[in-house]
Design a protein around this nucleic acid. Structure first.
Lengths: 239, 239
DNA sequence: GGAACGTCTTAAACTACGTTAGCTCATTCA
DNA sequence: TGAATGAGCTAACGTAGTTTAAGACGTTCC
């Protein structure tokens, strides 16, 4: 079912009625596989459907001059283009990192679903607002932290979000990004990113091999990163 | 009227019925003045009302270690905390830059207004999504542009947004921020920000004195900044 | 009227990064 | 089987930025 992780995530944060869960579970959808580094959409595109990540990672990027800046990373259960319900013109690309599976649901269906449920309207609007809160933290991350805590912060955020959808096991998770992706997300060169990764390894704060990352000392990593998870709004329920 | 600039801005982008305009115009509200550098709210606060900027500038900030990072800047007609309708816990501060006037409208009134008008729900949700689009551009700005185009980009964005609410006159506008604010917004030191400002002055791209900024050669400035206004979604109407 | 303060400005020394280049290793594919 | 490719890694060097410090100027306030 495409919405299993989505429902798990929303449920964990706001609580949903049986009826609303049923609506989400029974959305008509089309499933598509993407290979590594395929574009789901590009800047300038318009779309009439939303993507739900089922497996793998996606990321948003903007091309700035000769650099590619990653703006955010999407995990199973996320809807990376929910904003297209109200803003049809893409101002960035959406790309797969590693092979991934995506379910597409039409705007027209989503709109009718929202009309029928004020709770779902609240929940999905809220979801776009958490997305925005994450962007804000990224502005702070890239604008104010040094390279070491910047990279550490990204790992902390991903770990927290993966935990929510049950994709963490023994403080480890599958991580399809390359060091170059990490560099693009943190606004660093890949050479320096490599230096930082080595430093984190030497400090015993991360283990990373074969697309698998482990964070054996998360508390210390969070301290180094200055990671405060309040901005993820996991326990900030208005209902 | 507190919502004059707000209505002007929404009207310019999506179009509103007389009825919806009336609802916005007649919102019950409380007006308050803020002096320079006063906090409207702080990280960790909860609120049950939204702020509409009537005059002056506000900005959001996060404290990261010993630095203060400005996350976004709000102009007359903006609702900087519209997200509190669905996310009550503040993950950042909202501060006035220079003296400013703010109108407060209760969440309960806004919610009842939204229930009564699907169009206004769309329009305000959309507004929070444009807010998010601006954050994305800021991630790209701070993460990928050098200091000169970074500062130039900020001026371009502010000029475009001020124009929309009729606060540009002859390519000039009132600018209550200091160079230190600019530094905090761009993730730069104030010393280097000063160097950049001088360079822009020498190039004839900005004039800045007594809280008044003029951009005599906006096209060249936009080119230098790599400014592409698509992310502001001024002409991307779904209705 | 002058003391205190904030903002802007400049200079000099320093450093956290970027750039370029070249190497290894594993994987893929003809 | 071995050529081509992509990811990771390392080193040497260059530079765009930071830091610290101190002076100029205008404004506010007693």
């Amino acid at each position: 079912m495409p919405s299993t992780k989505l429902i798990a995530r929303l449920q964990a944060v706001v609580g949903l009625s049986d009826d609303d869960r049923g609506k989400l579970a029974n959305m008509p959808h089309a499933v598509r596989q993407f290979a590594d580094d395929e574009h789901i959409f590009r800047q300038g595109d318009r779309t009439s459907r939303c993507a739900i990540v089922m497996s793998g990672f996606l990321f948003r990027q903007k091309i700035v001059g000769s650099r590619s800046q990653i703006l955010s990373i999407y995990l199973p259960g996320d809807i990376p283009d929910l904003h297209t319900l109200h803003l049809s013109l893409m101002d960035h690309d959406l790309v797969s990192a590693g092979p991934s599976t995506v379910a597409f649901v039409s705007h027209s269906f989503l709109n009718s679903m929202l009309v029928s449920s004020p709770t779902l309207t609240h929940v999905l609007w809220r979801d776009t607002l958490v997305d925005a809160a994450i962007f804000r933290e990224w502005v702070a991350n890239v604008g104010s932290r040094d390279a070491l805590s910047r990279v550490a912060h990204l790992f902390c955020e991903l770990a927290a979000r993966l935990e929510l959808v049950g994709l963490m096991e023994d403080n480890g998770f599958i991580f399809p990004l390359t060091q170059e992706h990490l560099a693009d997300a943190c606004g660093l060169s890949k050479v320096h990113t490599n230096r930082i990764v080595q430093a984190l390894r030497r400090g015993g704060l991360i283990e990373w091999q074969n697309h698998h990352v482990k964070l054996p000392r998360r508390k210390e990593l969070a301290e180094l990163a200055g990671f405060m998870p309040d901005y993820l709004h996991f326990s900030d329920n208005k209902l």
